[in-house]
Structures are given as C-alpha cells and as structure tokens.
Design a protein around this nucleic acid. Structure first.
Lengths: 157, 157
DNA sequence: CTAATTCCTACTAAAATAGTAGGATATCCT
DNA sequence: AGGATATCCTACTATTTTAGTAGGAATTAG
C-alpha cells in the first residue's frame, strides 16, 4: 500500500510548478533542486506528465515547464493516476479496466477493496494544487508569527 | 498503491478460517485449495500471522489452524498491518514509527498522505471477519432465491 | 508405526524501483 | 552566427521486492 517515488516526486514537482504558476516556464533543474529530486530521474517523470497533458514544455534557453491548466483545475488524483496508474488496491477493482478474476461476483474480499479504493479517490480527487499553494501560504504566515520557536521538539535530521 | 498478494491472500485465508470458526483446526492445504493459493506460499504467510498472534496452530495429524480470537474481534486492518506493514502511502506518515525526512514540518505533501492514510485505516479497521462471513451468508441466500440467472452478464473466466 | 500436518530454512526467476548517462534537438540572447 | 540553456529520447544498471518452489525435520492422532 505504498506510493512509489514516482507519485511522491510527481506531486512535489507539480506543486512547485503551481507555486510558480504565472511566472513563465520553470526549468526542470530548478524544480529538482528545490524539491530535492534527482534531475535525471525527474526528467523521466515529467515526460510522463507532459504526455498525459498535465504540463506543457517550452524548449530551448529560457525554456522549462508550465502547468497546462490552472492549479485549481488539477487534483492530486490526476497526478497520481498518471504516474502510478489507476487507483486501486487490487487489480480486480481497477477504476479503468478491472481485471476479472475467477468467481468475480462471488468474491467478498472484492467489496472491501472497492471501499478502500473509493475512500482513497475521494481524498485525492478533492485536493487541488491550488489548495496546496493556499495552505502553504497560510503556514508561512504562521511560521513568521511564531518565529523560530515553532521548531521546538521538531525533527531536523 | 497496490496491495501485494501477501495482503490479498492473507485476508482470503483469514476469511476462510472465519467461515470455519468453531469446527476445530483447519489444515492449511484445504484453505489453499478453497482459496486458490499456492500451499507452499500460504505456509509462509500464515507463519507471519501466527507469529503476530492472529492464528493458533495445532501440529500433527488432524491439526491445522484456528483464529486465535473470534471473527468479530479481528479486523481487516489487523491482517493487513501484519502482512504488509504499517498502513501508510509514504513512510513519513507511517502509523508506528514515521520516518522523518528533511524539513518535516514544512512539507505540505505530507498532510495529503496523512489524509489518505486515515481514510484507508478508517475503512480497514471498521470491517471485521465476522462482517464478511455475515455478508457472505446474505449473498448466498440471494443467489439461491434468484437462481442461476444471477450469473447473466457475469464474468466466468 | 504411519499418515497427516505444521515448522523452518534456503533457493530462485521475474519484475519493479530508482536511478545514471549520453547525445540529439530546439531556442533565446548577444 | 554562435554559444549557452534547455528539453527530448533512449539505453543501461544495481538493488530490492514479489511470488513463489522445495526439502526435510518435528509433532501428534489414530
């Protein structure tokens, strides 16, 4: 039940693009640095996002990547589906083309996996990149107010 | 975001034991046959479940496995945690010992994974083996009432 | 004693994961 | 025009995980 780095890095990269939305194309290496991801690896991930139509690319100097829709129109579910495939704890409840097993309609475990799938998609489809940017802004305000004390007891490895 | 066969098979096997609860020890090979799982492989999985205290074993002839608690006291979450490890889409929101990353408290993606984790655990912890047995009984009644026509349009590979 | 059954350990093929790497191509800027 | 900055595309690789297979020792009912 783990997400791979594809999904994790993908969401981080898309969030980075959302934060910089409106300021022209963002070069991949700057994203990779800010988000602490291997540039080579991120290249492959963003290629998937581009082919799926979630980001647009601008080639050449001063080029980079741009969200192809405004942040409020891209959900975390959109990103995860593209990078990790259809959301489903097991293949027989795959959103797109559920893979039939023997005794399909008699399997009780199946109904459980459907419930899990639905609860996950509910969460992922309800959060947009704009929501994340908004929350991040709020958080920064709080940190300024509270100051450095906010890190008391915090982890800083 | 997929479950491995460990979790899937484990739930099936535990459900099988729940259906046969009260009728003495159930030999592993009969479970494997009914649930269509490799016996050799299931042996390893049930060893994990036994060490975790979810099933008891009876060795020797006429031996087998028994749920160590009544079906109403075992949830799907219990089983999944034992076989797949703590429920978490990413390690930094691990239920047991979250693995800290750099800039822990500043990561917005983290709050998303927490929401996903919570919605999954809510579902898995709310379903017991007894619930499954109950639902299965209901279903069998329906099938008897409707008869063979219930499979019209059904998959039967 | 024997058949049934759990228990324990080791082995393995195939796939997925998480990168690394190199060169071709395109475009801005001077 | 030419160099610097980028994307684009493909191939390679080490490590880990997955999903088993296998063999034999230990235990117990009948």
């Amino acid at each position: 039940m783990k997400l791979s780095t594809k999904g994790r890095y993908g969401v981080k990269a898309m969030f980075d693009l959302a934060q910089n939305y409106g300021t022209g194309p963002i070069p991949l290496n700057s994203i990779a640095q800010r988000q602490n991801i291997s540039g080579y690896y991120l290249e492959q991930l963003i290629a998937i996002l581009r082919k799926a139509g979630l980001v647009k690319s601008v080639r050449g100097a001063q080029g980079g990547y741009i969200l192809s829709r405004p942040p409020e129109n891209i959900t975390i579910g959109d990103i995860i589906r593209v990078l990790e495939g259809p959301i489903a704890p097991v293949d027989c409840v795959n959103e797109e083309e559920p893979e039939p097993c023997s005794k399909w309609e008699f399997c009780i475990t199946r109904s459980i996996w459907e419930k899990v799938r639905d609860s996950v998609t509910d969460v992922l489809d309800s959060i947009t990149l704009a929501d994340m940017v908004e929350e991040e802004k709020k958080r920064n305000v709080n940190i300024k107010e509270i100051g450095t004390t906010s890190n008391i007891g915090g982890v800083n490895k």
